[in-house]
């Protein structure tokens, strides 16, 4: 039987629901020796900012039980270089590219988005990072406040007709409320979750293991938080949700889809195995064949919840 793995977000159709997450796959071409990126549902780029950024001082990462904490600090080449160096490469990359944008004010985000709009490049949409825990200014300001989230989304919506995705933080009291605010502002879809606050300390030196003391926790240890967040968001709003957090296998993808995700992003696992998302895509086809699922959309939100 032929399985239809395609999914839609806004007006964009993706060949399959498995993307790679922002900050875990560079600009999309670093792993060309190891993986055929054209097989991916989409590539979400590193966060792009108005100006280039060096990022935070080392140490920036540490392994934790079934996870890791990072504090990279949005190191990136800046929007001008991104347009010059990367946008031409995306013409022939063979899959959709979603540019992740970060900023510290509405004007910052608008600046990046407007430049990308006028570049006319092959970018199918934008994922807005309102939830990076690792920068000093504007720390989580947008993602924890429904009003700011709504205003930012509205401003960006008026500047583009392309797919507009807001990436939400789990470090809030009610993620459903923030999700609703983003949808009111005009978001086409929502990504959840970004990293959780995390900290680890070396008992021998009494020093935190990363330079900013607290960083962003990711990896399999946060998967249940991601799944619960997707479940809550999909109950709160009617736009598609992209599930992120600790995906390492096809089973994890199925969990996210059942919880209400229309697509997923593989993150931390890319650091261990740059080809893991493409293997999961193959496994997803096999899973559907073995379970008589003709179209992947049939799984979305089909969790049989307790009353």
């Amino acid at each position: 039987m032929t399985v239809d793995l395609s999914v839609s977000l806004g007006d964009v159709s993706f060949k399959n629901p498995v993307f790679v997450a922002s900050g875990t796959f560079g600009y999309g071409t670093e792993s060309n020796d190891l993986v055929d990126v054209s097989q991916l549902g989409a590539i979400v780029t590193k966060s792009i900012t108005k100006h280039p950024r060096e990022g935070n001082p080392p140490p920036r990462i540490v392994e934790t039980p079934s996870g890791m904490i990072n504090s990279i600090g949005l190191a990136n080449i800046g929007v001008d270089k991104y347009i010059e160096k990367m946008i031409p490469v995306y013409e022939k990359i063979g899959t959709h590219v979603i540019t992740n944008i970060a900023g510290f004010s509405i004007d910052d985000y608008l600046h990046v988005l407007e430049k990308l709009e006028s570049s006319g490049g092959n970018v199918c949409g934008y994922e807005i990072n309102v939830s990076c825990p690792n920068v000093d200014t504007g720390r989580m300001e947008f993602s924890v406040d429904p009003k700011s989230t709504r205003e930012l989304t509205k401003a960006l919506r008026s500047a583009t007709k392309k797919l507009l995705i807001l990436k939400l933080s789990p470090n809030v009291t009610d993620i459903g409320e923030i999700a609703a605010a983003a949808v009111e502002g005009g978001a086409d879809a929502l990504s959840a979750i970004n990293t959780l606050f995390g900290m680890s300390i070396d008992p021998a030196t009494r020093r935190p293991n990363i330079n900013t003391n607290i960083g962003g926790l990711s990896g399999p240890s946060i998967r249940p938080v991601g799944i619960a967040s997707v479940y809550k968001i999909s109950k709160a709003v009617d736009v598609p949700v992209i599930g992120i957090g600790g995906i390492t296998s096809v089973k994890d993808v199925i969990e996210y889809l059942l919880a209400g995700a229309s697509a997923v992003q593989v993150g931390t696992a890319n650091f261990r195995d740059a080809a893991i998302a493409t293997r999961i895509i193959n496994d997803l086809g096999t899973y559907c064949e073995e379970n008589d699922i003709a179209t992947i959309c049939d799984l979305i939100g089909k969790v049989e919840s307790y009353d």
Binding site: G23, T24, F25, G26, E30, S31, L34, G55, P57, P58, P59, R60, I61, V62, M68, N70, I72, A75, N270, F271, R272, A274
Partner: peptide, 17 residues
């Protein structure tokens, strides 16, 4: 020597000044 996330340039974790 550096703590590394990926060793391939993806994670930007292993910097030195």
């Amino acid at each position: 020597e550096s703590y590394m996330g990926c060793a391939t340039g993806l994670c930007q974790g292993c910097v030195i000044e």
